Amino acid sequence: MTAELCAGRVVAITGAGRGIGREHALAFAAAGARVVVNDLGVVGQSQMFDAPAALNEPGTPEEVVERIRQAGGEAVAHTGDVATWSGAASLVRTALDAFGGLDVLVNNAGILRDRMLVSMTEAEWDAVVRVHLKGHFAPLRHAAAYWRQQAKSGRPVAARVVNTTSGAGLLGSVGQGNYAVAKAGVAALTLVAAAELGRYGVTVNAIAPAARTRMTEQAMPELVARPERGFDTYHPGNVSPLVVWLGSTESAGVTGRIFEVEGGRVSLADGWRHGPAVDVGRRWRPSELGPVIGALLGKAAPPEPVYGQ
């Protein structure tokens, strides 16, 4: 990764005090970007995730900013709640006030409240949907308004949005109904935003990462280091090179796509498509549909298994 890849670009990253978000911030700074580091976390305790103390490693946006500055980069901290309208708006304002613009938005902030559906509470559902889904939409909405204004004023726009979905959102995950639904919503939001914002010079893509973080150490304990691969396969930093590339001007023309990334592997997720069909040319009678549906299922590829099934 060369410093020229994102030289001078202004990048706002949500949930960047720890884990994957922190790695994104450091990687963008190393590639020459000026970074707005958003997070609600405080030292020794995360306001975004209920986890044992051992998993809540110290990490605040200010600490990430200091690391970037010590390495010769430029960064500022933002501690607003991006799942609120005002917090998302202030994220964009922070980028404009500190660096005079915004080129890249990386939506990364998230939480878990894992529970089987029969045991899940309303609060657990609402919290996860709020942070993941509204926490993606609200920053995107405010950033998009800025980019539209720039485009209508005749200024060139080469903006990028990188959202964060997951395998749970693409395939489902047992015990994570709230999280899976929210991440599926992020995938759909990515497709809609890519279609709507392309006219303003904005591309929108999403990643579905597999990495060891505070969110996955309990939910996915199998994400451990694999020395036989020659490197830590599930280190969160492995995800960031793809995000940096997607945030660069080199990724122009790549939009509305979802990439799965794990260790040194990058793949393109192949989502819902129109499959086999039968058209009878009139309203169906329920008694007719048994063999018709059987034939359609016989022609279609079997679905991928739900995680944890």
Results as ranks from 00 to 15, higher is better:
222 E>D: 14
255 T>E: 02
245 W>L: 06
279 D>V: 03
272 W>P: 10
219 A>C: 01
277 A>L: 04
277 A>Q: 11
235 H>T: 00
240 S>I: 08
240 S>R: 10
244 V>F: 02
227 P>W: 08
276 P>R: 04
234 Y>G: 03
235 H>V: 02
276 P>Q: 09
255 T>W: 01
241 P>E: 03
224 V>W: 09
262 E>G: 01
223 L>M: 14
215 M>P: 03
217 E>T: 09
243 V>L: 02
271 G>T: 12
223 L>E: 04
249 T>H: 02
270 D>W: 07
271 G>F: 08
244 V>H: 04
276 P>F: 06
227 P>E: 00
246 L>D: 13
249 T>V: 06
247 G>S: 04
259 F>Y: 15
230 G>L: 14
221 P>H: 10
225 A>T: 05
278 V>S: 06
232 D>L: 10
249 T>P: 00
268 L>W: 07
273 R>K: 13
264 G>H: 12
221 P>R: 11
243 V>S: 08
241 P>V: 09
236 P>M: 05
240 S>Q: 13
241 P>F: 07
263 G>A: 10
242 L>Q: 06
232 D>M: 09
225 A>C: 08
277 A>F: 08
224 V>L: 12
240 S>F: 05
274 H>P: 11
267 S>A: 15
259 F>D: 10
240 S>T: 13
227 P>V: 13
261 V>S: 03
229 R>C: 14
233 T>C: 07
264 G>I: 11
245 W>Q: 08
225 A>L: 02
234 Y>I: 02
254 V>H: 09
270 D>T: 09
250 E>N: 06
227 P>K: 05
274 H>D: 09
254 V>Y: 08
267 S>W: 11
232 D>Y: 10
275 G>H: 02
269 A>M: 06
227 P>T: 09
268 L>F: 06
